[in-house]
Design a protein around this nucleic acid. Structure first.
Length: 849
RNA sequence: GCCCGCUUGGUGGAACUGGUAGACACAAGGGACUUAAAAUCCCUUGGCCCGAAAGGGCCGUGCCGGUUCGAGUCCGGCAGCGGGCACCA
């Protein structure tokens, strides 16, 4: 054993050993409790980054720890391999998306392997592989047959230059992010998942996800957006030609109907469409609304514009009363019925609108203590609950009662009904792109939309595609789309859209259970492994990915592919990795390795010696060059250093600041432990007192076990360091050799999940049997967890005045006598008598003077 | 605008369900070893005050107030920072 730890040899040696012995290969074993640890699989963008290192380190600690605790652990890895960057690379670099993707996977796999993760690589999968997406097509068809997939029309952001549909985030100031052309709203026939069929269930079931962060549950709750209200039907006066004579609105405030002074329709409401045909001004107004779009700057968004159709609607409660019908840009077709009634006295937005267009305001709710005769609305609507006024039969009721009464009346009159609305919309999954899972449907002139028969799956992506023309390469392909109709045998064409990549990631956790099965999932395997016991990833997926996966699992349940509803029993969202940024005087961003720190604390550019502006620490990003490449760190310090640093200092849910000094500190600790084990196990015949050391050892085992269970890895790191400190001290004092050995063994086992290579090397060096990663977790002996004496705090009037050592569980009179005899206590009492004593055994005694 | 979270030394952070604030590190300063450097080891390190020293006192967890024998922890208000959603009827 040499005195300096050679991480290069050790890390590759143990990685080879684990692989050779297949120690992380998982198989179903009903005799043992299972534990499925999963980290969100990466997009193969090229290289792994520090965010991956953090994510996979956290998961690996859990996996190794649970394995040591006797669980049958499944810990797989795969690739979220479809997506737009591959097509961009194809166009810009003339590389086929498949080659680009598989090359990146090879690079990243090699980088991940160098981290020493306890992964079952035999289960590796890539979503772009036909062996994966074939089964996704099967699920899509099964969902279709179960009524969870349908074809509908949707407005999309259409880029007229690139001939493609853009995601909202690709529309910047109303223009395509790449072409710069003004984006058009187009109505296209698209595929949807019927996620709204589960709105209420997805909401209700959040309550059962006890091991999910509250934050994520709340975000999903808000996203689903349940609200109670009513549909109200208004009769349109003087029915316009070819139009409905009724308009249905949704409202959460049926109580304020008497305050309604106008109706507003969405620019995309069918009624609006009908009117616009004969009204060029309205048509222009609708076009104007479309131009403003949804992603306009906040200032633009704040402007509310309307168009008076000149039509009137009859008030459902007040015979003879009518209100004008407007079209307004702020009414969304996608929410409610696409039409509202405006009550300016009770809604700020409506109030702003009527002030602009000079419509009337009728106050209908006032604060409890206000006077009905003098209560008036100025520039602020009264939106709180209160007492009803100017509302006929509702007058005097409170808001809740008025809502109930108004709904009852609507239902009795047949002019409306109580209902529940959700903000959640169905999931649009069609993408006009090449690098995605083909949608297994055929369009036939005579049969319509026909599913591809199961036996013909997969519908495989053609490889010979070109990216030099704008638009979807599948559309341009000379032959691919032409196909015989599976139903009538006549000429038909394939659906050339591909699925949103969120579909790929909505079931990969299930596929991992039987990754090579000839069906999407093997029931026995998913029944055994699912749900995922611990899922770990970034909070940026808190809504879409996690919600889609929850929906998809329900769909798989309904179609008989699984028997559970919730895929992730436990969820942990980690913080991001940050670094300060550096900027030269001329504005260039500099990489951390391009700067030097001077002794006086100043920072200069290495190449020029000129001073550098140090920016605040923020999320690592290539554009600001505040990045550190994991590969470089592993080359210099090894994987264990990177892992240890990732776990130290910052709690995993918070952002972590990467610092060179912190990495150095981690590296120093590894060498310190190395020397410690070498030195301490050398002294074989010492017979000193060892009670302190045993207490430290078993206390550490106990604490670290609990800390790992609670995801408090940074605290576990601190306790491991403490144990190392104590061993060094006690061994230096000549503690009993057998006890030192016990402590060192515990230390090695405790650090094993965090620094597995160092752990194996140390384990071998002290003559441990087998592999460390197969050793059981150490057990704390309870008899060393409690001391005979305890130090307790002595307070006078709540202020600490002394600490005294007492027998454990000493009775109050004894504690009181000792406490009062303390000089500092006497001084603080200033001769006053004892009025009261609060005694918490083994903790504190507080004397009230 | 609405909803949520956070705020503790020079820095990252610790403190179980209200009970000795600052664990464990980083940085800094001092010292040892060395021809020197690296590495390593030891000591000091929240602020202020009294004292030659030993020791002692006061203040202190963003700010203001409250509950309690006792508050970093609970409650109310405010500020700052961060996140989510955003014309949601």
């Amino acid at each position: 054993m040499s005195s300096r730890y050679n991480f290069k040899d050790a890390e590759s040696k143990w990685q080879a050993e684990w692989e050779k012995r297949r120690v992380f290969a998982a198989s179903e074993d009903l005799a043992r409790p299972k534990y499925y640890v999963l980290e969100m699989f990466p997009y193969p963008s090229g290289r792994i980054h520090m965010g991956h290192v953090r994510n996979y380190t956290l998961g690996d600690v859990v996996a190794r720890y649970k394995r040591a605790r006797g669980y049958n652990v499944l810990h797989p890895m795969g690739w979220d391999a479809f997506g737009l960057p591959a097509e961009n690379a194809a166009r810009d670099q003339k590389i086929h998306p498949a080659k680009w993707t598989y090359d990146n996977i090879a690079t990243m796999r090699a980088e991940l392997k160098r981290m020493g993760l306890s992964l079952d690589w035999s289960r590796e999968l890539a979503t772009c592989h036909p062996g994966y997406y074939r089964h996704q097509q099967k699920l899509f068809l099964d969902f279709y047959r179960a009524g969870l997939v349908y074809r509908g029309e949707a407005f999309v952001n259409w880029d007229p230059v690139d001939h493609t549909v853009l995601a909202n985030e690709q529309v910047i100031d109303g223009k395509g992010w790449r072409s710069g052309a003004p984006v058009e709203k187009r109505r296209l026939a698209q595929w949807f998942f019927k996620i709204t069929a589960y709105s209420d269930e997805l909401l209700q079931a959040l309550g059962g996800l006890e091991r999910w962060p509250d934050k994520v549950r709340l975000m999903q709750e808000n996203w689903i957006g349940r609200s109670e209200g009513a549909y109200v039907t208004w009769k349109v006066q003087g029915r316009p030609k070819g139009q409905s004579d009724k308009l249905e609105v949704f409202t959460t405030r049926p109580d304020t109907l008497y305050g309604g002074t106008f109706l507003a329709l969405s620019p995309h409401h069918p009624f609006t469409d009908g009117l616009a045909k004969a009204d060029p001004k309205l048509k222009a107004f609708v076009a104007e609304c479309d131009r403003l779009g949804t992603s306009e700057a906040a200032i633009e968004a704040a402007e509310k514009i309307g168009y008076d159709t000149g039509l009137k609607a009859e008030h459902p409660f007040v015979p003879g009363k009518t209100v004008p019908i407007w079209v307004a840009n702020f009414v969304l077709m996608e929410y409610g019925t696409g039409a509202i009634f405006g009550c300016p006295s009770g809604d700020q937005r409506d109030l702003d609108f009527v002030r602009k267009y000079r419509l009337p305001v009728i106050p209908v709710v006032m604060p409890r203590d206000a006077d009905a005769r003098s209560f008036a609305i100025g520039d602020t609507a009264f939106t709180d609950d209160g007492v009803m006024i100017n509302s006929d039969f509702l007058d005097g009721m409170d808001t809740a009662a008025a809502k109930r009464a108004a709904i009852a009346r609507l239902e009795k009159d047949g002019t409306g009904r109580g209902t529940v609305q959700y903000r959640l919309r169905d999931w649009l999954v069609s993408r006009q792109r090449y690098w995605g899972c083909p949608i297994p449907f055929v369009h036939c002139e005579s049969c319509g939309v026909v599913p591809v028969p199961d036996k013909d799956l997969p519908v495989q992506l053609p490889e010979d595609v070109t990216f030099d023309k704008p638009g979807n390469p599948l559309d341009h392909h000379p032959t691919w789309r032409h196909v015989d109709c599976p139903q009538c045998g006549g000429q038909a064409r394939r659906d050339t859209d591909t699925l949103d990549t969120f579909v790929d990631s909505s079931w990969y956790f299930a596929r991992f259970c039987s990754p090579r099965a000839d069906e999407p999932v093997t029931r026995a395997a998913v029944d055994y492994w699912l749900p995922v016991d611990q899922y770990i990833g970034g909070v940026e997926h808190a809504i879409l990915h996690l919600l889609y996966s929850r929906f998809f699992t329900r769909g798989m349940h309904k179609t008989g592919h699984a028997r559970l509803d919730e895929p992730f029993a436990g969820l942990f969202t980690q913080g991001m990795v940050c670094h300060e940024s550096y900027r030269a005087a001329d504005g260039r961003w500099l990489y951390p390795e391009e700067i030097d720190r001077k002794p006086d604390g100043g920072v200069v550019e290495s190449a020029t010696g000129k001073p550098v502006t140090v920016g605040r620490r923020e999320v690592m990003s290539k554009s600001k060059k505040n990045v550190v490449a994991p590969a470089a760190i592993i080359d210099t310090y090894g994987a264990d250093t990177a892992r240890w640093f990732m776990l130290s200092d910052s709690p995993p849910e918070r952002d972590l600041e990467w610092s060179a000094a912190g990495v150095e500190g981690a590296w120093r600790f590894i060498n310190r432990v190395w020397r410690l084990v070498e030195e301490c196990t050398g002294k074989s015949d010492a017979r000193g007192d060892a009670t302190e050391l045993r207490r430290a050892t078993h206390g550490a085992i106990n604490d670290i076990t609990q800390l790992l269970d609670r995801f408090k890895f940074n605290s576990a790191v601190a306790r491991i360091r403490e144990l190392a400190n104590t061993i060094e001290e006690e061994a230096g004092k000549g503690a009993d050799a057998a006890i030192v050995r016990e402590a060192v063994e515990a230390l090695i086992k405790l650090l094993g999940p965090m620094m597995p290579h160092l752990g194996e090397e140390l384990w071998a060096s002290i003559g441990g049997k087998g592999l460390l990663c197969e050793q059981p977790w150490p057990a704390a002996d309870p008899k060393f967890l409690v001391a005979d004496t305890v130090e307790i705090a002595v307070q006078v009037n709540g202020k600490l005045r002394a600490t005294v050592t007492l027998r454990r569980d000493a009775p109050q009179d004894e504690a009181q006598t000792v406490a009062l005899s303390q000089p500092a206590v006497q001084r603080a009492m200033e001769g006053k008598g004892v009025r009261k004593v609060i005694y918490r055994p083994n903790q504190v005694i507080n004397v009230v003077a």
